[in-house]
Measured scan of single mutants.
Amino acid sequence: MAASAHGSVWGPLRLGIPGLCCRRPPLGLYARMRRLPGPEVSGRSVAAASGPGAWGTDHYCLELLRKRDYEGYLCSLLLPAESRSSVFALRAFNVELAQVKDSVSEKTIGLMRMQFWKKTVEDIYCDNPPHQPVAIELWKAVKRHNLTKRWLMKIVDEREKNLDDKAYRNIKELENYAENTQSSLLYLTLEILGIKDLHADHAASHIGKAQGIVTCLRATPYHGSRRKVFLPMDICMLHGVSQEDFLRRNQDKNVRDVIYDIASQAHLHLKHARSFHKTVPVKAFPAFLQTVSLEDFLKKIQRVDFDIFHPSLQQKNTLLPLYLYIQSWRKTY
């Protein structure tokens, strides 16, 4: 089996927390979720979201995140109150960019949308954001926290390059993509939290790379249903696996070995980020709550012996909000 052949990389499970039942964490995340308004986002309300009498641009960002990046939404709820709305805006910006690729039928249209967001970032730093909910909220975040323009532009530029429907040539190319998107998002989150620390940035770099790799793995069944495969070609070739094997949902050992190798790289990034947690300011830990969902996925895929098409991998963990709150309460990542 794939797991038994390579099992030495995987460390002990961390979500089991001995003695936790003896201490009762304060009510927090679930209460916040219940208090949030929840009407559906419609095209009509989106168009009017920044106008008078609408929910408001902040509510639009929150709803977009809740629907399109639920794990990011849950993590954002546990940030300090003064930072929450800015991170909602930042993550909503990322969602807007991420959904361009799947929402257009022609690359030219995707490039036009990316050009809109490039100009939007430029206009935000000229205090002239367009009348668009996410743009307005992002402008507020930039003004409030003096966010670095370079990180925002890196996210747009990398998403634009990724409009080509090509597999990553190697794991390094996937890591570079993750660094310029997910890690950049974390650098900006640290700025919102008021953290300027080399060790925190180092952790953000590795956690962002782990996030990018896990996202690529999780999306494999969806991409396969659209006749697309984006997994690193070098690892596929190493194990003699073709793109057609993934399109046919082949579950042979060599296919699972490909998934094992890729998942192991995410695991190593996560492990390395945690190896120097004592040197990272505690104030930075809330920015890294996504490690909970990353670890949850890596454990699940290990349990199914790296069968990327196993139905259990597509099921939401209903206990994730609780695990996130516990992680926040324990002040760790």
Score class of each variant (00 low, 15 high):
Ser45Phe: 12
Val46Ala: 10
Ala48Arg: 15
Gly51Lys: 09
Gly51Arg: 09
Gly51Pro: 07
Pro52Glu: 12
Pro52Cys: 11
Gly53Met: 13
Gly53Lys: 14
Gly56Trp: 14
Gly56Pro: 15
Thr57Cys: 13
Asp58Thr: 12
Asp58Val: 09
His59Asp: 10
His59Trp: 09
Cys61Thr: 15
Leu64Trp: 10
Lys67Asp: 10
Lys67Ala: 08
Arg68His: 10
Arg68Trp: 08
Asp69Trp: 08
Asp69Cys: 04
Tyr70Arg: 11
Gly72Ala: 15
Gly72Val: 07
Ser76Tyr: 06
Leu79Asp: 02
Ser83Cys: 12
Ser86Met: 05
Ser86Gln: 06
Ser86His: 11
Val87Ser: 14
Arg91Lys: 09
Arg91Tyr: 07
Arg91Trp: 06
Ala92Pro: 03
Phe93Glu: 01
Asn94Asp: 05
Asn94Arg: 02
Val95Tyr: 06
Val95Ser: 14
Leu97Val: 12
Val100Ser: 07
Val100Tyr: 06
Val100Glu: 06
Lys101Thr: 08
Ser103Asn: 14
Val104Tyr: 13
Val104Ile: 12
Ser105His: 12
Ser105Lys: 15
Glu106Asp: 13
Gly110Tyr: 07
Gly110Asn: 09
Leu111Cys: 11
Met112Arg: 10
Lys119Leu: 04
Thr120His: 06
Thr120Asp: 02
Glu122Gly: 09
Ile124Phe: 04
Asp127Phe: 02
Asn128Gly: 09
Pro130Glu: 04
Gln132Trp: 13
Val134Gly: 04
Val134Ile: 14
Ile136Trp: 12
Leu138Ser: 00
Leu138Arg: 02
Trp139Thr: 06
Lys143Trp: 07
Lys143Asn: 08
Asn146Ala: 12
Thr148Leu: 03
Lys149Pro: 04
Arg150Met: 12
Arg150Trp: 08
Arg150Phe: 11
Leu152Phe: 12
Lys154Cys: 06
Lys154Glu: 06
Asp157Phe: 09
Arg159Thr: 04
Glu160Thr: 11
Lys161Leu: 12
Lys161Met: 10
Asn162Ile: 04
Asp165Ala: 12
Ala167Pro: 15
Tyr168Asn: 05
Asn170Val: 04
Asn170Cys: 06
Asn170Pro: 00
Ile171Arg: 01
Ile171Tyr: 09
Leu174Cys: 01
Leu174Val: 07
Leu174Trp: 01
Tyr177Trp: 06
Ala178Asn: 01
Glu179Gln: 07
Asn180His: 11
Asn180Leu: 10
Ser183Arg: 06
Ser183Phe: 00
Ser184Ile: 14
Ser184Thr: 09
Leu185Ser: 04
Leu185Gln: 08
Leu186Asn: 13
Leu186Arg: 03
Thr189Tyr: 10
Leu190Met: 13
Glu191Trp: 01
Ile192Ser: 14
Leu193Met: 09
Leu193Trp: 07
Leu193Ile: 10
Gly194Leu: 01
Ile195Leu: 13
Lys196His: 10
Leu198Lys: 04
Asp201Met: 04
His202Arg: 04
Ala204Gln: 02
Ala204Gly: 06
His206Asn: 03
Ile207Thr: 03
Gly208Thr: 02
Gly208Arg: 03
Gly208Asp: 02
Lys209Asn: 03
Ala210Ser: 11
Gly212His: 03
Ile213Ala: 01
Val214Asp: 04
Leu217Asp: 00
Leu217Cys: 03
Leu217Trp: 05
Ala219Gly: 14
Thr220Gln: 10
Thr220Cys: 15
Pro221Leu: 10
His223Arg: 03
His223Gln: 11
Gly224Ser: 13
Ser225Tyr: 15
Val229Met: 10
Phe230His: 14
Phe230Ala: 09
Leu231Phe: 05
Pro232His: 06
Asp234Cys: 01
Asp234Trp: 01
Ile235Arg: 08
Ile235Met: 08
Met237Tyr: 12
Leu238Tyr: 12
Val241Asn: 01
Gln243Asn: 04
Phe246Met: 12
Phe246Pro: 02
Asn250Asp: 09
Asn250Ala: 14
Gln251Tyr: 13
Asp252Glu: 14
Asp252Asn: 10
Lys253Asn: 11
Lys253Tyr: 14
Val255Asp: 03
Arg256Ser: 07
Asp257Val: 03
Val258Met: 05
Ile259Asp: 00
Asp261Met: 08
Asp261Ile: 05
Ile262Arg: 02
Ile262Tyr: 02
Ser264Trp: 06
Gln265Leu: 14
His267Asn: 07
His267Phe: 12
His272Gly: 07
His272Asn: 15
Ser275Val: 10
Phe276Thr: 06
Phe276Arg: 06
His277Ile: 07
Val280Gly: 02
Val280Ser: 02
Val282His: 09
Val282Cys: 08
Val282Tyr: 07
Pro286Glu: 04
Leu289Glu: 00
Gln290Val: 09
Gln290Thr: 09
Gln290Ala: 13
Glu295Pro: 00
Glu295Arg: 07
Asp296Val: 07
Leu298Arg: 03
Ile301Ser: 03
Ile301Met: 08
Ile301Thr: 06
Asp305Asn: 11
Phe309Glu: 01
Phe309Arg: 04
Leu313Arg: 00
Gln314Met: 10
Gln314Thr: 10
Lys316Ile: 12
Thr318Arg: 09
Thr318Tyr: 14
Thr318Ser: 11
Leu319Gly: 06
Leu324Gln: 04
Leu324Phe: 10
Gln327Pro: 00
Trp329Lys: 11
Trp329Asp: 02
Lys331Trp: 15
Thr332Asn: 13
